[in-house]
Design a protein around this nucleic acid. Structure first.
Length: 986
RNA sequence: GCCGAGGUGGUGAAAUGGUAGACACGCCGGAUUCAAAAUCCGGUCGGGCUUACACCCGGUGUGGGUUCGAGUCCCACCCUCGGUACCA
């Protein structure tokens, strides 16, 4: 597929007819865009006379494919809210920028040698141009780019503050590391040990006697940005470290080379210190429950106990964390994570070879594979035994991939009676199972549910699980073998990448000890490199720059760079004061804008970005640099717009020569299905191909015996040539370059059909729809409204351009409501008819309610209903048209501005005030009640709304239809809900 | 596997526990037109019955339950999508 070129989107474009009364959207939109820009209509300042409102979009990563129709879904929604709030009198901050560091630009650089800065700048220009066409009210003066040194200077600065801070247990917040040094200086580590934050006990004198390296190593255990070791995917063949995304099925996605986990020293952020506050803070946020739930589960707070198991014939012990200390008598073996530090020590000589083999296997396994694997249990006995702390029995120690080094202590006491994976493991390795919880009273209960009565458990026997947990912990504590503990699933965040295109660390090493640069050395700019492909073992390309790495004073620079989420963890603050050279955000601006009132973005960021941002904000808050502890008050997730792909099968021939080389043979759906089912034989298929283009070469058919047909499924064809499921292959072949030869084998009716598959919109699938093309044909207003009309903002759905004609028709209808065929304004300064006022006010109230609820699709239909109604009634009243234009302006900013100015206004419609809807105009005096018999609607009857229930009941029972059903008998019950329904039960 | 979301006509969807399918697309029929585009009018969940008006039965992924009444609430299951710690 490498030889075909993607061509611009023209397939569904029809010629646009512009009649006398047609609106030239493109001209109109260009004209108003220019005027707004000239007047600075969307420029925002800190205006203390008006209440502020901060509406933020998750900024995009500018990929080479440009914006597709899925991106603007959330942007249109937030733009509508921004404009609506402005009409409501708020001073609205609505900025946009670019998340500009990232892997794709670097990968492109490796392939082509183009500097990522060049690709990125180009992509950003294209994105910005596309965004501007859609008519967003962004204040472009405030644009930020995370790869801009003026921006990442402050990313580096915040990293330095994290490095220079520790989490002060006394204040329960971050504090300057010097306060820790003062503490150690004056009293040693006693209070730290008491607080459980470190184990080494030493005095003030001991501290003072330590050398620099020892002191720094100690402080490293407390810094919020710190060095530790972690594993990365290493691919020897490619010579690079790979992202999880780049590893598929245990091999590199590019090239299919072997990969393995290797351990490296890297930077981390101590987000776990914030686990409790990140959890608690959720309670005060206006986010969806599902989003909060995902964060809660990610943080994963669990209460239990840590217990120490002594090893037989050894001084070492294994510490485990368990949420089920009550089941300790059911612990019949132990399992260590394969990476556990004790593994090498405790493995016996007889088991060493087997353990090593198993460790090799685990190195090729991703964490996800390890957790997802439930069908086949794997593990290996180490030869070592632990001593059960209560029974004194020997229990074997295994290693197994299902135990992860990063969770808890990296070791478990396995209780096969009450844990599914332990159970499966015990069964596979024939280990004893002791049923310690009698759940016979709870037939519905699962093995892992915390209900039942304890059995075979010595002093716990007869207790309910809940009580047994408490009793077991008490006992464990009194025996001194463990203690009550709260554990979090959340792990500290890896902050190093062995990559080029990221923020350099403002760090140098002397004697292997990291030191920060001075603040005036910031920004530490990313230097140019010769090659983007890493040279040395798992090092970033920066490591090859010897002059840059090795400083004259003998120190060396950190060569890793920061991850993608570094810049995105605080960019929302920079928008408040984007050009400030002296501070990451100026104090006055920060105190005015404070935090984001509405944040719109995809669920894919539910835990990553949203958790890191919250941590950074809390840290900056602790240190007194910002005034709010949470960055995003309200959060809304937009759904994903998927593409519809054209998927076919491709066949390759071996052992036969075609008239041309490099021919791709595609099979139409029915042909391919029949072939797969065996209803078409190899020979028949070959015949079909032969009909398309004669197979030449030595003896053709005689070669059939050696012929090999290779079917590849799931090949994507570009959707531009698609009409329904029919693929116009002759146009497609004409459109691509001459090197590409393709043979299309159609169905028996001569038509080539594809499988339609709904999936992520992506360049690689050839299913991308570009908003530019939609706007060229229908205009930005139409595009915006159609995106909203597609469905609820948070729902995912496939894009289909066909339906857009409905919205297009609506905009024309709106235009014709106010402008006649000759282009003359029809609107008159006459008093509005009562019916028209009712239509208008119903619309105002509905749209207002819908925008507040972010239900934009129903707001669009409310506009359609209003315009249909006003068209039907022949309304011409200015008093109706003007408010209608104002409420529609957030959705369709261009056409409303044009009509508004035609009505004689010199000030922009976007500076108008939202009209007040009057509910009194909508009050009805009667209601047409549905009458249902046993819940099924049988007829309708109209009653005044103030009619007494008894009268309604009497009148309803006398209806012919009702009499037919009741057969004259008295009903069992009559339910009357005023203004709703009448239900008769017989 | 685990966590989260979703499943309603041919399609996108609507519906504070109260007339399922608003608003649109598509399709069918008609008006207008030399013709087309555009526009306008009517029809459009399935089945039964009827010359017709009407009427009846079934219907919101599957199976149960709560309720006068369930797309909506509860239980179990199936399928699709997002995340799963280095894609962004």
């Amino acid at each position: 597929m490498s030889s075909f070129v993607l061509i611009t989107f023209v397939g569904w474009k029809k010629s646009l007819s512009i009649g006398v009364m047609d609106i030239n959207y493109n001209e109109l939109e260009r004209r108003w865009s220019a005027k707004w820009e000239e007047k600075g209509l969307y420029k925002v300042t800190e205006d203390t006379t008006r209440p502020k409102y901060y509406v933020l979009d998750m900024f995009p990563y500018p990929s080479g494919a440009g914006l597709h129709v899925g991106h603007p879904l959330g942007y249109v929604a937030s733009d509508i809210v921004s404009r609506y709030k402005r009409l409501k009198g708020f001073n609205v901050l609505h900025p946009m920028g670019f998340d500009a560091f990232g892997l794709p630009a670097e990968q492109y650089a490796i392939e082509t040698g183009t500097h990522p800065a060049i690709t990125t700048a180009r992509n950003i220009d294209y994105y910005r141009e596309q965004l501007k066409k859609i008519g967003f009210c962004y204040d472009w003066y405030r644009e930020v780019q995370t790869s801009d040194p003026a921006f990442y200077k402050w990313t580096q600065w915040i990293f330095m503050q994290l490095f220079n801070s520790w989490y002060d247990f006394r204040l329960n917040k971050a504090a300057d590391i010097t306060t820790l040094v003062d503490l150690l200086q004056s009293e040693g580590s006693a209070s730290l040990v008491a607080a459980g934050t470190c184990e080494a006990l030493f005095s003030a004198a001991d501290w003072q006697a330590m050398d620099v390296a020892a002191q720094q190593n100690f402080l490293m255990q407390f810094r919020l940005a710190y060095l530790d070791h972690a594993e990365v995917w290493w691919c020897e063949a490619l010579g690079t470290v790979l992202a999880n995304d780049e590893v598929k099925d245990g091999v590199s996605e590019r090239g299919g080379h072997p990969v393995e986990r290797i351990r490296m020293r890297q930077w981390f952020l101590r987000i776990t210190e914030y686990a409790d506050r990140l959890l608690e803070g959720l309670n005060h946020l206006d986010w969806t429950d599902s989003m909060k739930e995902m964060q809660r589960n990610w943080i994963g707070r669990s209460e239990g106990a840590s217990i120490s198991f002594a090893l037989k014939d050894s001084t070492a012990s294994i510490e485990v964390f368990t949420t089920r200390p009550d089941t300790i008598f059911g612990a019949t073996f132990m399992v260590l994570a394969p990476e556990h530090e004790l593994v090498a020590d405790i493995t016996t000589d007889e088991q060493r070879a087997a353990v090593d083999t198993y460790l090799q296997y685990v190195k090729t396994r991703s964490e996800r594979d390890r957790q997802a694997e439930v069908k086949t249990v794997t593990g290996q006995f180490t030869g070592a035994y632990a001593v059960h702390p209560f029974t004194g029995k020997d229990i074997p120690v295994y290693i197994a991939e299902y135990v992860l080094a990063g969770y808890g202590t990296g070791a478990i006491m396995a209780v096969p009676s009450n844990d599914d994976r332990d159970r499966a493991f015990a069964e596979k390795f024939s280990l004893p199972i002791i049923e310690v919880v009698d759940q016979s009273a709870y037939p519905q209960a699962a093995r892992e549910d915390k209900i039942g009565v304890m059995a075979h458990s010595d002093f716990l026997n007869g207790m309910e699980v809940k009580d047994a947990i408490a009793a077991a912990i008490d006992h464990i504590e009194s025996k001194g073998i463990g203690k009550r503990k709260i554990n979090f699933r959340l792990r500290d965040a890896g902050f190093s990448r062995q990559r080029y295109w990221g923020e350099p660390f403002p760090v140098v090493y002397r004697e292997d000890i990291p030191y920060l640069l001075s603040e005036d050395a910031l920004p530490l700019e990313l230097p140019d490199v010769e090659a983007y492909k890493p040279g040395g073992q798992a090092k970033s390309p920066l490591a090859a720059l010897h002059d840059w790495v090795n400083l004259p004073d003998g120190s060396t620079r950190e060569t890793d760079t920061m991850p993608g989420y570094a810049g995105s963890s605080w960019y929302f603050l920079r928008y408040m004061d984007p050009k400030n050279p002296n501070r990451f955000v100026g104090e006055a601006a920060e105190k005015y804008w404070r935090s984001v009132d509405l944040y719109v973005g995809g669920t894919e960021h539910a835990v990553g970005h949203l958790l890191y941002s919250r941590m950074w904000q809390k840290f900056l808050f602790d240190r007194g640099w910002v005034s709010e502890e949470e960055p995003f008050k309200k959060l809304v997730n937009q759904g994903m717009i998927q593409g519809v792909s054209a998927v076919v099968s491709r066949v390759k021939l071996h052992g036969i020569a075609l008239s041309r080389i490099n021919v791709e043979i595609f099979l139409s759906k029915n042909v391919s299905d029949d072939y797969k089912k065996g209803e078409i034989s190899d020979l028949e298929l070959l015949d079909l191909i032969d009909q398309m283009e004669p197979i030449t070469g030595p003896g053709n058919r005689e070669f059939v015996g050696e012929l090999e047909l290779n079917l590849t499924e799931g090949i994507h064809l570009p959707i531009q040539f698609l009409n329904g499921d029919i693929f116009d292959y002759s146009s497609y072949v004409k459109s691509v370059n001459s090197i590409f030869h393709a043979l299309f084998v159609p169905d028996s009716d001569g038509i080539f059909r594809v499988d339609l598959v709904v999936e992520k919109m992506s360049k690689r699938y050839g299913n991308v729809v570009n908003p530019d093309d939609v706007i060229d044909q229908y205009g930005a207003d139409c595009f915006r409204m159609y995106e909203m009309f597609l469905g609820p903002i948070d729902a995912s759905k496939p894009w289909d351009t066909k339906g857009i004609t409905g919205v297009s028709g609506f905009l024309r209808k709106l235009w014709r409501l106010m402008v006649d065929d000759a282009g003359q304004l029809k609107v008159e300064d006459t008093p509005p008819a009562a019916g028209d006022l009712k239509i208008l006010h119903r619309c105002i109230l509905k749209v207002e309610d819908d925008v507040e609820r972010l239900s934009f699709n129903t707001a669009v239909s409310a506009f359609m209903i209003a315009v249909n109604g006003l068209t039907e009634s022949g309304c011409r009243s200015k008093a109706v048209m003007e408010p209608l234009l104002i409420i529609l302006a957030p959705f369709a900013p261009f056409i409303t501005e044009e009509l508004w100015s035609m009505l004689g206004h010199t000030e922009s419609v976007h500076r108008a005030a939202w009209p007040k809807g009057d509910p009194a105009l909508l009050v009805e005096s009667s209601f047409n009640y549905p009458v249902s018999i046993n819940g099924k609607v049988r007829t309708n009857v109209e009653f005044p709304l103030d009619m007494p229930k008894a009268d309604m009941e009497q009148a309803t029972l006398a209806l012919d239809v009702v009499l037919k059903w009741t057969e004259g008998k008295a009903p069992k019950k009559v339910i009357i809900v005023p203004g709703r329904i009448i239900n008769i039960v017989i």
